[in-house]
């Protein structure tokens, strides 16, 4: 990283969102700078996924501001947010089960205006990152294992040539080995291609090891933030998310 901090790519200020009368986000501030991996950790129901979804316009922001690359995107509809090349691997993966792996990846490519040749290059890159998808290109998405589906969801997002990749709980329900493969892939993407990543995770240990910076969310509010490794050392984090919860990987 250079000395002068890069300008934030994604800026979230005083963001509020709610489901009916239940407030899910109570004034959240968050920055993601270009070339950074940022982890957002917190317990179930803290509002992590809601924050990600609010960036995409569903649910709508009640108050506050979301800006991407200097442009206000607070009230932009979902598909237009995506067209700014903010890609997401959403919660529950949401791949297209009856379509083949190749078609799923093509769906990501359709979102870009890149040429067919560029698509081929992108496809090679994604398949290089997740070789297991290469063996399954002609298989239907629904027949893949959970880990492969997660790889496909990330691969599909990468086919959009994202400027910002948002991952919602990529480790959910996966074996530790698969989780590590996926986290390694994210690290590679960040180091090699300078991809900016916002990752929402319950797996605080691995997420904070991966991330440059981290935010901790409790009840719709950011309670802590700082460097990933530094957060990992904090006693309150250790107590809340590590020792009481998951074992060290």
């Amino acid at each position: 990283m250079t000395d002068a901090p890069a300008p934030p790519l994604l800026t979230i200020r005083a963001l509020r969102a709610s489901y009916g009368k239940i407030a899910a986000l109570k004034g959240v501030d968050l920055d993601v700078r270009a070339g950074e991996i940022v982890a957002l950790i917190g317990a179930n129901g803290a509002g992590k996924s809601t924050l990600m979804m609010t960036v995409f316009g569903r649910p709508r922001a009640r108050d506050g501001r979301i800006a991407f690359d200097g442009r206000d995107i607070t009230h932009l509809p979902t598909h237009l947010v995506a067209r700014l090349r903010i890609a997401q691997a959403p919660e529950g993966r949401r791949i297209f089960p009856r379509m083949t792996v190749a078609e799923n990846l093509k769906m990501g490519a359709d979102a870009t205006e890149a040429s067919a040749a560029d698509h081929a290059v992108d496809l090679e890159r994604v398949l290089g990152l997740f070789p297991r998808l290469k063996e399954r290109l002609t298989q239907r998405g629904g027949t893949l294992s959970g880990g492969e589906q997660q790889m496909l969801a990330i691969g599909r997002a990468l086919m959009m040539r994202p400027r910002l990749l948002m991952l919602d709980e990529p480790s959910l329900g996966l074996a530790p080995l698969i989780t590590r493969q996926i986290f390694d892939a994210i690290r590679t993407l960040n180091r090699r291609d300078g991809l900016t990543v916002l990752i929402v995770e319950q797996n605080a240990n691995q997420a904070l090891r991966l991330a440059h910076r981290g935010y901790v969310m409790v009840n719709g509010e950011i309670t802590l933030s700082g460097e990933g490794r530094e957060l990992l050392q904090r006693p309150e984090i250790r107590a809340a998310y590590l020792e009481g919860g998951r074992q060290r990987a």
Binding site: F56, R58, P77, T78, H79, L80, A82, R83, A87, Q88, P90, R94, I95, F96, P97, R98, M99, E103, K106, M107, G108, D110, A111, R156, M160
Partner: peptide, 24 residues
């Protein structure tokens, strides 16, 4: 064509479609 793929994707998952920049 992309529109045909978008139809089929829409049948499978509308939310994912929007996340991929498809105007549903």
């Amino acid at each position: 064509l992309p529109i045909g793929r978008a139809w089929e994707a829409l049948r499978e998952d509308e939310v994912a479609c929007r996340a991929l920049g498809i105007n549903t």
